[in-house]
């Protein structure tokens, strides 16, 4: 084979092959297995240890629509985990593009599980200032957020009467495509000893491993792979708790199947992920062989 030609391969051909590697497994699923990783299991366990109807999990939706393919399935899975175990949730956003996503996810899952706004969950909305907001909440959440997302004064919300600062929050999960989990560790973790877990895009996952080793993070969900693992854990939990059985009985077959698909959105993408990775590995190998062969010939 002409190696010169191989080195000058039209990049559009690579794009096409990657597109095909993604599309085909979505059309014809293979069902490759998902292995559970410890950081995801630890996150799941941390959420699971929160007592039902007790102090809430704080879920910070700190990402924009560009990160939705990876982080939105995580958001849905965590909310499903909480609501299926009757764990209350306090949702907020420190990212300016996050409030719409947070509301969409929270209202959708709350409706699915019949949860009441203000009692089972509260949506605080967005507040700019990152570190300043995190620090302020350590003193008084009511001072950081005067109203919730729907402009209701915080003091009038039943669930918020017992929640004042991080002493009343057993766990914070920050879902972010940027460095916002670091701010949570810096200000809420170091200053107020708040327990923190993070859900991040795969790009930044490697950055956060050192914080797992030092227990500054109790758990980490990384990228679509992490989301699919969490999804799997929640689906198994719902089966154990009988939530799935109840849902099957109360919904029509079509509705139930549709819901099942939406509950496995991240897992459905994992076949495409694996095949696309194989294609990329093949290109890396071919590219390197061609490069070194060319270099040797030049010598």
């Amino acid at each position: 084979m002409n190696l010169e030609k191989l080195m000058r391969i039209d990049r559009r051909l690579i794009f096409l092959l990657i597109a095909l590697a993604v599309i085909f497994p979505l059309l014809f699923p293979i069902g490759l297995p998902t292995h559970l990783s410890k950081p995801v299991q630890d996150t799941f366990n941390a959420v699971d240890s929160i007592p039902p109807d007790g102090p809430p999990l704080m879920l910070s939706i700190d990402y924009d629509p560009a990160a939705m393919p990876e982080l939105y399935p995580m958001t849905l899975a965590i909310l499903r985990h909480c609501f299926s175990r009757n764990i209350r949730v306090l949702v907020l956003s420190l990212h300016r593009a996050g409030p719409g996503i947070g509301e969409m996810a929270t209202t959708r899952i709350a409706k699915e599980y019949g949860k009441k706004e203000g009692e089972d969950y509260v949506y605080l909305g967005f507040k700019p200032g990152f570190g300043a907001v995190i620090l302020r909440m350590g003193e008084d959440i009511h001072g950081a957020f005067l109203t919730d997302y729907y402009n209701r004064p915080i003091g009038e919300i039943p669930m918020m009467r017992e929640i004042h600062n991080y002493d009343d929050i057993p766990l914070v999960i920050c879902l972010s495509a940027a460095a916002i989990p670091e701010l949570w560790m810096m200000y809420a973790g170091s200053r107020y000893h708040q327990t923190i877990a993070a859900g991040v895009t795969a790009v930044s996952a490697a950055d956060y491993y050192p914080f797992l080793q030092t227990d500054q993070l109790v758990g980490l969900i990384g990228g679509l792979k992490g989301a699919s693992e969490y999804e799997k854990l929640v689906n198994e939990l719902e089966e154990r708790l009988g939530v799935d059985k109840k849902r099957k009985e109360s919904l029509s077959k079509e509705e139930y199947e549709k819901l099942q698909v939406s509950h496995s959105k991240a897992s459905a993408g994992m076949d495409s992920q694996s095949i696309a990775h194989l294609v990329i590995i093949a290109f890396i190998v071919i590219g390197n062989v061609a490069y070194f062969a060319q270099r040797r010939r030049k010598r």
Partner: peptide
């Protein structure tokens, strides 16, 4: 992995 996820 992240970029492929976005495409997916």
């Amino acid at each position: 992995m992240a970029r492929i996820s976005l495409l997916i």
